[in-house]
């Protein structure tokens, strides 16, 4: 008598079922578009709030304490807790969820905009002033272009944060790809859960790659290789014009 065949759980059943890709009704395309819409709308609102404030604080260095601490506090706020709080306070609906997402997205943008402006080489700013730029010109023609790598990296981490938290927000009634996950979990429909997870992961990775491409397009090649690699210890680094050996040496480590 042959042993009974235990059917392997086909994780991809939901994802590869053509019926779920129908453009009509609440299929995958619809959920995907919803998710993208929530993410971009939230990011846009957050940027409109955080960028001017960050630029003001960074340019004038007034309220620096605020910028630094909002950045740290924002990171330690539990996203799910904030969503729950909003829903219990205001009730189920898209608006309270979007507000919660904005609250989470503002700190990284604000903090990195501030940090970006502060990282700008003072001598370049002094040169800009010395050449007769007005304060607003100094900000937009000198400081912002040089601060862009950090400003954009703040926007990118906010983007990922929003995309991920929008998934969680399905638990409190938001649409989007999170619905597949949450609804699947409540009905033990694992192929659906898996489909939701894969789709949201792919979406997040694509959004990140897309934003990396945008970063390359807007950041001047002259300031690209900055940020992390420049630390205080590099103050005393070799002067490249003074270097006889044009390539990295062999045998330096033994």
């Amino acid at each position: 008598m042959p042993a009974p065949v235990v059917p392997m759980l086909n994780y991809f059943a939901y994802l590869f079922d053509g019926g779920h890709w129908s453009l009509a009704g609440e299929g995958i395309p619809d959920r995907l578009l919803q998710h993208i819409a929530y993410t971009l709308v939230t990011l846009a609102i957050s940027a409109v709030i955080a960028l001017p404030v960050g630029l003001f604080i960074g340019h004038t260095n007034r309220g620096a304490f605020l910028a630094i601490n909002i950045g740290n506090a924002g990171r330690s706020l539990p996203t799910f807790g904030l969503l729950s709080l909003m829903v219990v306070l205001v009730g189920i609906g898209t608006l309270p969820v979007i507000v919660a997402l904005v609250v989470l997205a503002v700190p990284p943008i604000l903090a990195s905009t501030y940090a970006g402006l502060r990282s700008v080489d003072r001598s370049a700013v002094d040169a800009a002033i010395g050449m007769g730029m007005r304060p607003i010109q100094v900000l937009f023609r000198a400081e912002v272009p040089m601060a862009l790598p950090l400003i954009v990296s703040g926007l990118r981490s906010a983007l990922l944060q929003v995309c991920a938290t929008a998934t969680v927000a399905a638990y409190v009634g938001l649409g989007g790809l999170g619905r597949l996950l949450i609804d699947g979990l409540s009905t033990n429909d694992y192929p659906q859960v898996f489909a939701g997870a894969v789709l949201v992961a792919v979406l997040a990775v694509l959004l990140d790659l897309l934003s990396a491409a945008v970063e390359r397009a807007v950041v001047s090649p002259g300031v690209r290789e900055r940020s992390v690699r420049r630390t205080r210890w590099r103050r005393a680094r070799p002067d490249p014009t003074n270097e006889d050996a044009p390539t990295s040496p062999v045998g330096i480590s033994g």
């Binding site: 014009t241 270097e243 006889d244 050996a245 044009p246 040496p249 062999v250 045998g251 330096i252």
Partner: peptide, 18 residues
């Protein structure tokens, strides 16, 4: 002048360049 090999020559003495 720069690029004349003076530093490379020096570094070969202690084998930081072979």
């Amino acid at each position: 002048p720069s690029g004349c090999g003076k530093t490379t020559s020096l570094r070969m003495i202690n084998r930081t360049i072979e």
